[in-house]
């Protein structure tokens, strides 16, 4: 009899204990359902990089010109500070009052735009160049050989420079479309390392002395060339820090100010900075927290007053930045 009594007590204990355990852990399972485990050891916060340099900003946004274009792609400014913006196969000109004056559509998607001192518009399509006069009438056009992917165009005097990410060279043409020479092919004898272009970002610009600068994005390097293709100078700075360039291919876009310093625009962690002609960081213009998420890359250009114009494709705006101490 005593044994069966023990048995009974044991049974009741087991039932009580196990039901209590089930309720405790069952409720705990329901509560913690789908919740992230606390303190993830792998957390990698890239948000911090987006704030990098915010305290160094010496520029302020003074104006945002709204665009009525879908997915604006490239931007240029002429000597009279009129803004040219491309979207798909179209190009529009916006004057100082925000009035749209010229709107032209060409045969193919426009990858890049430049405006010469005469006011002629040079459009780089994927494999061709189209030249329009200031009224938007086509005056010339030519094809680029081989497997070209033009990503940038710049006009210096009587030369047209075309950055070609497909062939990894810069083509030099005259204004009528005659090929003069190729620049930047790997040539150890002339100390040219060759362009390393891991993504379709490859920009060229002309400095105040009229010489070509091309960005070797894969090496985070700026290269300066004589018109005949000889290397004039170069500098590079790969670094995750604010004073350098990081990622696979940066800076994605450049422009050159009147004193020869560079306005650089980086993709990945978006930021716009100014570097001296010899490479040192001079100023931070804008940091990632000033742009919407999903913004892909920001093309930049400068106007006659050294204001920096940033084409924001996400917001469809031309955002204009100016040094804080400059008068409005």
């Amino acid at each position: 009899m005593a044994e069966s009594k023990n048995d009974r007590i044991l049974t009741i204990l087991v039932i009580f204990f196990s039901v209590a355990g089930m309720i405790y852990f069952g409720l705990s399972a329901v509560r913690s359902d789908g919740k992230k485990t606390a303190g993830n050891p792998f957390h990698y916060d890239i948000e911090n990089f987006k704030k990098d340099g915010a305290d160094l900003r010496t520029y302020k946004e003074v104006k945002a010109v709204p665009l009525t274009l879908l997915a604006p792609h490239a931007i240029a400014v002429d000597l009279r500070d009129r803004i040219y913006v491309t979207s798909g196969a179209s190009v529009v000109r916006i004057d100082a009052a925000g009035q749209m004056s010229v709107s032209t559509t060409v045969t193919d998607e426009i990858n890049a735009i430049a405006v010469s001192a005469d006011g002629d518009i040079y459009l780089a399509l994927r494999t061709a160049v189209e030249v329009l006069d200031s009224t938007g009438t086509r005056t010339a056009s030519w094809q680029i050989p081989d497997q070209a992917v033009l990503t940038s165009v710049a006009v210096a005097g009587r030369d047209v420079y075309l950055a070609d990410a497909g062939n990894r060279v810069v083509w030099r043409y005259d204004l009528q479309g005659t090929l003069l020479n190729k620049i930047g092919e790997r040539d150890e004898a002339r100390d040219i390392v060759g362009f390393l272009i891991p993504s379709p970002y490859f920009d060229v610009a002309i400095d105040p002395d009229g010489f070509l600068w091309a960005v070797n994005t894969g090496r985070h390097q700026f290269e300066n060339y004589f018109p005949d293709g000889a290397l004039r100078s170069s500098w590079s700075n790969s670094s995750m820090a604010i004073d350098g360039f990081s990622g696979c291919c940066n800076p994605a876009h450049i422009a050159i100010l009147s004193d020869g310093s560079f306005v650089t625009s980086e993709k990945g962690i978006l930021r716009i900075k100014v570097h001296k002609q010899i490479g040192a960081l001079e100023a931070v213009v804008a940091t990632a927290d000033q742009f919407d998420p999903k913004t892909s890359s920001l093309e930049v250009t400068v106007d006659s007053r050294d204001q920096i114009l940033v084409l924001d494709p996400q917001r469809a705006q031309v955002r204009i930045f100016q040094k804080k101490e400059d008068p409005p």
């Binding site: 050891p41 792998f42 990698y44 990089f49 891991p198 993504s199 894969g218 985070h220 790969s238 995750m240 820090a241 990081s246 990622g247 696979c248 291919c249 990945g268």
Partner: peptide, 28 residues
């Protein structure tokens, strides 16, 4: 892949050198 030397998927941000040293690697 860009086959980059400065691979931001491989290297810790601010890595002292671009090599296979454990302290330079991002991967835990």
């Amino acid at each position: 892949c860009g086959y980059c030397d400065l691979c931001s998927g491989y290297l810790e941000p601010g890595a002292k050198s671009r090599d296979t040293g454990a302290e330079n690697q991002l991967c835990p």
